[in-house]
Amino acid sequence: MALRRLVVVVVVAAVAASCRQGLAFPAMSALPGLPVAGLAVGFYNATCPQVEELVLAEMRDIVQRDWTLGPALLRFMFHDCLVRGCDASIMLISRNRTGEQDAAPSYGLRGYDEIEQIKAKVEEECPMTVSCADIIAMAARDAVYLSQGPRYPVETGRRDGKVSVMCDANNDLPPPFSNIVDLKTYFSVKGLGWKDLVVLSGSHTIGRAQCSTFAADRLYNFSGSGGQDPSLNKTYAASLREACEAGLQNDNTTVYMDTSSPSTFDLGYYRDVYSNTSLFLSDQALMHDRWTSAYVERMAAAASPDEFFSDYAVAMTNMGRIEVLTGDNGEIRKTCGAHVD
């Protein structure tokens, strides 16, 4: 088993490297928690001082129209930052269908139109000034805030990338069936530690997921056994089977990731993981490591979300520093959804 995991990691790393031909050298912290040159809270204070309030106003309009777009836009930042870094490459469109948007992990990803809506409003006030990458980061923060979570400071100063490749997204995003060893490997490659992993996983406290992302592994064919994951709470599993049809490969039926408070950014996710009622194998995998399981247990028993909120601000800042383009690297685009071919 250990050998198989090693082979998987090596193969993934080799394939991911092969996708990176021609990639500009990004700015990146050498260790989690260290600042990145070119990023700063208030980067636009002189050039577009109202940008954060513009983004927040648009986000209020978006989530009032459909609250599920808040969690969707939080997920959007993960898909941007974990693939080629936080450079808005997820917004780039490939006519040949070989871009990040066309990758398997991007199936069901929502938020493209909403990022364009926010960008258009910002362009009206501050033409060719604010990057799409920074808008994605601010929108994710406000998605958390508008779900009763913290409105943490967001570093800005990113510039937008010009490359979007399908295989990067296929290789760099951890699948929902990942075990704890694989999860820690995916995160460590990006300069993130175990605490970033367990804290950022708390994002699953809001929003929904499609049955196709978990049903086979959790309900109907766990580890190829043809049965249910034995660690999954049986009552919860029965309710999931009512929603998710067996054998339906692209089942886009959605269920809440946190059944007790799906629209509130709170500690419900950790209570679900601790009680074996989390949705994904990758969620339950947090209980298979000494450090991540201890954090889950502490948050599940916490009377206040303050520690989680503080940790979340740090972890999102760390993720927001991954492979960023700053200074003269990258570009500022008028429209985020430019074509790459």
Rank of each mutant, 00 (worst) to 15 (best):
R4V: 15
V9P: 00
V12Y: 00
V12M: 05
V15S: 06
A24T: 12
A24W: 00
P26C: 02
A27H: 02
L31R: 14
L31H: 13
L39W: 04
F43C: 09
A46P: 00
T47N: 07
C48S: 09
E52A: 14
E53Y: 05
V55Y: 09
E58C: 08
V63K: 08
V63F: 03
Q64I: 01
R65N: 15
T68M: 11
G70R: 04
L73K: 05
F76T: 13
F76E: 14
M77G: 07
D80V: 10
A88D: 08
I90Q: 13
M91T: 07
L92K: 09
I93Y: 07
S94A: 11
R95G: 09
R97S: 08
T98H: 02
D102W: 01
A104G: 06
P105S: 07
G108Y: 09
G108N: 10
Y112M: 15
Q117Y: 12
Q117K: 15
I118G: 11
K121P: 03
K121M: 15
E123C: 05
C126S: 11
C132E: 09
A137S: 13
M138G: 06
M138I: 07
L146K: 04
E155S: 04
T156W: 02
R159L: 12
K162M: 13
M166L: 11
D172G: 00
S178Y: 02
N179E: 11
K184R: 10
Y186P: 05
F187V: 10
K190T: 07
G191W: 01
D196K: 01
V198P: 01
L200G: 04
T205A: 01
I206W: 00
G207P: 01
C211N: 07
F214Q: 06
Y220C: 06
S225Y: 05
S225I: 09
Q228W: 00
P230N: 05
S231D: 14
N233Q: 02
K234M: 03
T235L: 01
A238E: 10
A238T: 05
A243I: 06
E245S: 11
N252W: 08
T253C: 06
T254V: 12
T254S: 13
V255I: 12
V255K: 01
D258L: 00
D258E: 05
F265L: 07
F265T: 09
Y270T: 08
V273K: 01
T277C: 00
L279Y: 00
F280Q: 05
F280W: 06
F280A: 04
D283K: 00
Q284K: 03
A285Y: 02
M287A: 07
M287T: 06
A302Y: 02
P305A: 13
N318T: 12
N318S: 12
R321M: 10
R321N: 09
V324Y: 03
T326M: 04
D328Q: 08
D328I: 04
E331R: 11
E331F: 08
I332K: 03
I332P: 02
I332F: 03
R333T: 10
K334I: 11
T335K: 10
C336V: 13
V340T: 15
